[in-house]
Structures are given as structure tokens and as C-alpha cells.
């Protein structure tokens, strides 16, 4: 019998610090698989966020750069421009990309930087203990909105993908999810497209991945995936946006 599924070379053979059922583990694996399949492990440079995935460089076996919270797209801009032959991608959570880093994200996109942005949207702050995020749903509880998000006070879930899609320089935006094997395969396809765009020099690509945070949603891992299917993906519709 032949092995048809296993760990890819770009993914270190170590256990991760992520909670049971966390989407980061899946997303890390998908990114590593694509990088191996595209044969770019030796050329890729990742920019890690500040958030649960801050030590993503402990799990990927290729060059990685840390960025101050929210600044990954600025760091990536410079690395890609001084090393255009390398493949540069950022991997950011919703706090990193859509709260403190919104300005850097929008301007990197508006300049059409030829980078790939992997945006993990789990609608909550994970690393710091479940605070309200820009993408938290109305009514969804958070440690800093204990009665749930209220539009009048906290505003509405931020649609970064739609905002960036409106920028002429943005080449590709797709929103995908991890809530089932089928959706995970779609996520992989979208990520691959985003990396291929960069290899072809096509410009700014972003993949928004709806990802489970069982711990701070207060659900079991399976219930969290179902919640994405039934609730989160209604507020954040899946599919190709640009």
C-alpha cells in the first residue's frame, strides 16, 4: 500500500500549542502542503502575526519573519520589494489584520503588492483570551463584550475581503472555510491560486479562512465547525469575491 496522505516537508514534525480542534493547525498544514506542491519551500518567506499563530515559525520549516502586531503587510511589502524573486506571504488573524493592522493591510492591497495574504478569521481574539474582534458577530459573546456584541456600541462585523475587493490593484480575494473536509479542499484550492498568482507576478491576493476557535466560542470542536456552517458563513458568505 502507498501512503496517499501524510505530513509535508514544510511542516515540522512537532506538536503544536494550539487548542484541540483549532483551525490554525489545519491552515498551517494546508499552507505547508501547497508550498511543497508548488516546490517553493526554498524560496518562500513567511510573515507571522501576533496572535495565536505568533510562533508559526516553530511549525513551518522555511524562512519566517516576525512582525509587530498588525504590521505584517508592511513587513511583507518591503521583503517582497527587495527580494522580488522570493515568495512572500503573511499569515494573520482577525485582530492582527482587521483591527490594529487594517491600515497596513488596506495600503499594501491598494499598492497592489505582489504578496499572498492568508487571513484567519475566527471572529474572536484567541491568544489573549476571547476578546471582541472586528469580525465578532452581533450578539456573539466575548470577554470584553460579555452580554454579546451590540451594533450601537461595537459596530458591525468588518468585511475586510469585500473592502479589499473594491480596490483596483487587488487581484484575487476568496473567502473559504475549514468546517468540513470538502470545505478544507476548497480552502486548499483557493490558497494554491493565491500563491500561483504571486508566482505569476499577478499582484495582491488574499484568502479569508473562516476558522474554528472552540475554546473561546465556548463549544466543542465539532459544534464550532457546525456554527461556522450554520451561522458564521451566513454573516461572512463563502466564495470567490474577486
Amino acid at each position: 500500500m502507498e501512503k496517499i496522505f501524510g505530513r509535508s516537508e514544510s511542516l515540522r514534525d512537532v506538536s503544536t500549542h494550539y487548542c484541540p480542534g483549532c483551525g490554525h493547525g489545519i491552515a498551517h498544514r494546508l499552507v505547508a502542503e501547497i508550498i511543497d506542491e508548488l516546490g517553493i519551500r526554498q524560496k518562500v518567506i513567511a510573515i507571522a502575526p501576533v496572535g495565536c499563530a505568533v510562533i508559526a515559525y516553530d511549525y513551518w520549516d522555511f524562512d519566517c519573519c516576525e512582525a509587530a502586531h498588525g504590521r505584517a503587510c508592511a513587513v511583507a511589502t518591503a521583503i517582497k520589494r527587495v527580494r522580488p524573486q522570493n515568495i512572500v506571504f503573511t499569515y494573520q488573524g482577525d485582530g492582527d489584520l482587521a483591527a490594529i493592522g487594517t491600515n497596513e493591510t488596506i495600503h499594501a492591497a491598494n499598492r497592489g503588492e505582489n504578496i499572498t495574504v492568508v487571513f484567519i478569521n475566527n471572529a474572536i481574539y484567541g491568544m489573549t483570551g476571547g476578546q471582541l474582534a472586528p469580525t465578532t458577530l452581533i450578539g456573539q459573546k466575548a470577554s470584553t463584550a460579555q452580554k454579546g456584541r451590540v451594533a450601537k456600541e461595537h459596530g458591525y462585523p468588518l468585511k475586510i475581503s469585500e473592502i479589499l475587493a473594491s480596490l483596483p490593484a487587488v487581484k484575487y480575494v476568496e473567502r473559504v472555510s475549514l468546517h468540513s473536509p470538502q470545505e478544507i479542499l476548497k480552502t486548499k484550492k483557493a490558497l494554491k491560486q493565491a500563491f500561483q498568482n504571486q508566482i505569476a507576478g499577478a499582484g495582491f491576493s488574499l484568502v479569508e479562512i473562516l476558522s474554528p476557535c472552540a475554546t473561546y466560542w465556548g463549544m466543542s470542536p465539532k459544534a464550532a465547525l457546525d456554527w461556522i456552517r450554520d451561522v458564521l458563513s451566513k454573516e461572512f458568505p463563502l466564495g470567490r469575491i474577486k
Binding site: R7, T16, G25
Partner: peptide
Amino acid sequence: TFCALICPDCCIEVY
């Protein structure tokens, strides 16, 4: 490979 696809910790190999 559904199990391997959904596993967040890369615990499963499929043959």
C-alpha cells in the same frame, strides 16, 4: 482521507 483532512494536528496518515 476525510479524517486526515480535518485533523488539526496531522496525526493521521492514510495508505
